[in-house]
Structure formats: structure tokens, C-alpha cells
């Protein structure tokens, strides 16, 4: 039977744009162009590599998000994923990571899976805990933050590079893995891939389809609440040391006064 891989991806505001919060302290997704989270591209890439190596696999990309989020799915499909699932419901607005993991877990179960692949974190929320939450909700092992990953037989194996040690990890399938930005450059969609993506199926699901009550998710159902947000203060002008013969000394004094040397 073919290996069923589900990749969780997120549609995020472009990090190079002027990102801000909306009036209800949720991420403003309207004023900045969105795209497939760069960190999730690594997840898609590794899933496609595993699928290519297995020769008999199906890669499904899954996202939870508003209408525009289908662009992220389209990008992943044009990279080579086989099909997509889009969970979209007005009641999802404001959902925190706990609620998001509940929605993803239901959608993953509904899709059917042997391996769930995630990026290391989203580039907007940067929580990075979705893989662990999914592992708990799905009742399967987690092997996270891998810089190398592969599937052999019924086992997923990978390498996690830490500051102090490199760990070689493995888990029996089904399992949840997350991959880092060191796992290998994500491929660029090819012309044929882009044209083929037009014909690939995108399944739309709402909360009813997944059997989730509206009050379990959304702003009201969130376990965390954002009371206020303050913009980072503008950077102040630096100190300019004018060299009049004593420049080096002044520079050293400044660095010493800031305890840099």
C-alpha cells in the first residue's frame, strides 16, 4: 500500500512586507501579501523527496486558513504534491496554536496518513509546537527538528543537529516529523509542475466536516489571549566617532563602556 504523507503548510504574511496586527490583535492578513511560509517549503521538499525515494507514495498538502491560503496550497502542488486539503471556516479566525492543532489533527485523520511532515515553525506565529501537539492528538511518535530525514520500510529515520550533539533518531510509522531550514533547499516550481497543479484536486473542508464545534476554536476558544501589542521602537541613531587622531582609542572606550570588550 502506498505511503500516505501529509504536509502541514501555512499561508503567512510576507516577512519582507510591513506586518502588523489587526484591531482584534490577530495577525493582519489583508494589508500584506501572503505566501507559503518559507519554512514549510522545506517540509514540502522533504516530503517530495521521501515520496520519490519510495516510488509509491501520495503527498497531500494541508492548510488551515482563509480563502487566500489556497495560494500556499497551489504553490505546494506546483512543487509536486499530489493533492491538497484546505480547511476554511469563518469561525476559525483568531484560533491559537492549540485550536489549530485540533483542526489539523482532525483533517489529517480524515485524510489518512502514515507520515505527517511539518516545517520547524511558521514565519508569522513562530510557535514551533504544532508537530508536538499533533503527535499528542494523533497518538503517534514525533521526531522533530530534523536536518535529514528518510523513510525505510515502516520506519522514519532522521538526524537532529543540536548545539552540543547530533542525534540520530527513528520512529515507527505512523509518525509526525518536522524538518529545519538546514534540510536542503526547496525546489522551485517548474513550468510543467505549475501547469499540472491546475488539474490537481483541492478538497475544501469546514468545521462541520471535521466535527469541530465553533466555540472550541476561534478567538473565544483560544487558550491564549493577546491583550495588547506595541510596535518595536524605531532604532535610534548610532554614535558617530570622528577620527581626529584619537579615533581608535575612542572606539575602544565606547566598546569598553558597553562591555563589548
Amino acid at each position: 500500500m502506498s505511503l500516505r504523507i501529509v504536509v502541514c503548510v501555512k499561508y503567512v504574511p510576507d516577512a519582507t512586507g510591513d506586518r502588523r496586527f489587526a484591531d482584534d490583535n490577530t495577525t493582519d492578513r489583508d494589508s500584506v501579501d501572503g505566501l507559503l511560509s518559507e519554512l514549510d517549503e522545506y517540509g514540502v521538499e522533504q516530503a517530495l523527496k521521501i515520496a520519490e525515494a519510495s516510488g509509491d507514495a501520495e503527498v497531500t498538502v494541508l492548510t488551515v486558513g482563509p480563502d487566500d491560503a489556497k495560494d500556499a496550497l497551489r504553490k505546494a502542488l506546483s512543487m509536486g504534491a499530489d493533492k491538497a486539503v484546505h480547511v476554511n471556516d469563518d469561525d476559525i479566525h483568531g484560533t491559537d496554536v492549540i485550536g489549530t492543532s485540533a483542526i489539523l489533527a482532525k483533517a489529517i485523520e480524515k485524510t489518512g496518513f502514515d507520515l505527517v511532515v511539518c516545517g520547524m515553525a511558521s514565519t508569522d506565529g513562530t510557535m514551533g509546537v504544532i508537530p508536538a501537539l499533533l503527535s499528542e492528538r494523533l497518538g503517534v511518535p514525533q521526531v522533530t527538528l530534523l536536518s535529514e530525514v528518510g523513510v525505510e520500510g515502516g520506519t522514519v529515520k532522521g538526524r537532529r543537529d543540536g548545539d552540543a550533539a547530533t542525534e540520530l533518531l527513528e520512529a515507527s510509522l505512523p509518525a509526525v516529523v518536522s524538518v529545519t531550514d538546514q534540510s536542503g533547499e526547496a525546489r522551485y516550481p517548474s513550468f510543467k509542475g505549475i501547469m499540472a497543479a491546475k488539474k490537481k484536486p483541492v478538497e475544501s473542508l469546514d468545521l462541520d466536516d471535521l466535527g469541530i464545534e465553533a466555540d472550541e476554536v476561534g478567538l473565544a476558544g483560544a487558550w491564549t489571549a493577546v491583550d495588547s501589542a506595541t510596535a518595536r521602537p524605531a532604532r535610534t541613531a548610532g554614535t558617530i566617532v570622528k577620527d581626529e587622531g584619537e579615533g581608535g582609542k575612542q572606539l575602544a572606550e565606547f566598546l569598553a563602556s558597553q562591555k563589548f570588550i
Binding site: 506546483s78 533547499e185 522551485y188 516550481p189
Partner: peptide, 16 residues
């Protein structure tokens, strides 16, 4: 959309 997507893909590849 597909043509724009292809141009964006080339742009990303060449930018890097």
C-alpha cells in the same frame, strides 16, 4: 496566474 507563477519561480531561483 500560471505564467505569473512561472515568472515568480524564475525570479526566486535567479535571486538566490
Amino acid at each position: 496566474a500560471e505564467q505569473r507563477g512561472f515568472a515568480a519561480s524564475l525570479d526566486a531561483l535567479l535571486s538566490a
